[in-house]
Design a protein around this nucleic acid. Structure first.
Lengths: 140, 140
DNA sequence: CTGTATCCTTAGGGATACTG
DNA sequence: CAGTATCCCTAAGGATACAG
């Protein structure tokens, strides 16, 4: 089984993601990694929604355990970790883009810029390629 | 604001969907409506994950309030309701398909049929059109 | 400053009784 | 059977103290 431990209420693919991301915080960490280039604990802490320290630590652990995030020591600062998305994590990008598109359509106050939404409607592929290459860009 | 009431921790589009669907049950109801053609209370109750009666009632209320689901009296049985997705609800289909694709890739035991995943990889649009037309098919 | 552990409150949710 | 209400418990999570 992927995602060791945990409940597993059924073999449904929708249920599978709910058991990893079905809470109010996990997806925000993914968002920060994917769209905002965040890598350090303090950066995640600083996000608008105000995640608390214990919840953040717990989510980073779970995501690491589930193979969505990987953690390594920051070469510039040995007492600091760098968190990065694995391939499994990066593969969440299409999901995240569709979520953004839906919110963009139905939430009047959403921050997603119009140009971004238009690019989405055209064709997802080039946008996906760009975001992923940006992500590679600041690796290491 | 869309989605009246509720917290609203930020104006982020990812956060927006979390405040509606960020729990372990809501998305399963959407799944049942979208992929399994379910319409009645007892049908949702019968799903594999075993939602309990009070939670189901609560989620149907919230989804109705948020304009994702609409409720009407079943003409065949006046003491029974029919639940349907609104346009806003149907627009979740691309999100649900991407979630299914991701799980199909990473969950070894997921039920998503291979043919379905292949169709997904080809091009989402025809598949989306088909599912939506099936959904229209059994309206009224 | 980077995280972790503890304490405590609240909300999510399971079981089940109940009403039309 | 469709749906609601109650009871109670567990787990999510906020505040914050603590450790390296």
């Amino acid at each position: 089984m992927a995602h060791d431990s945990d409940l597993c209420r059924s073999n449904c693919p929708i249920n599978f993601v709910l058991e990893t991301f079905g809470d109010k915080w996990t997806l925000l960490v993914i968002r920060d990694l994917l769209f905002h280039g965040k890598r350090h604990y303090s950066e995640f802490l600083a996000s608008d929604e105000g995640i608390s320290t214990n919840i953040l630590a717990n989510r980073l652990q779970r995501l690491t355990r589930d193979g969505v995030v990987e953690k390594e020591v920051d070469p510039d600062n040995r007492s600091k970790a760098i968190y990065r998305l694995t391939e499994k994590g990066k593969d969440l990008l299409p999901v995240m883009l569709e979520i953004t598109a839906w919110s963009g359509k139905y939430d009047s106050k959403t921050n997603a810029p119009g140009a971004f939404l238009e690019a989405l409607n055209e064709d997802r592929r080039p946008l996906i390629a760009k975001i992923l290459s940006d992500l590679e860009g600041d690796e290491g």
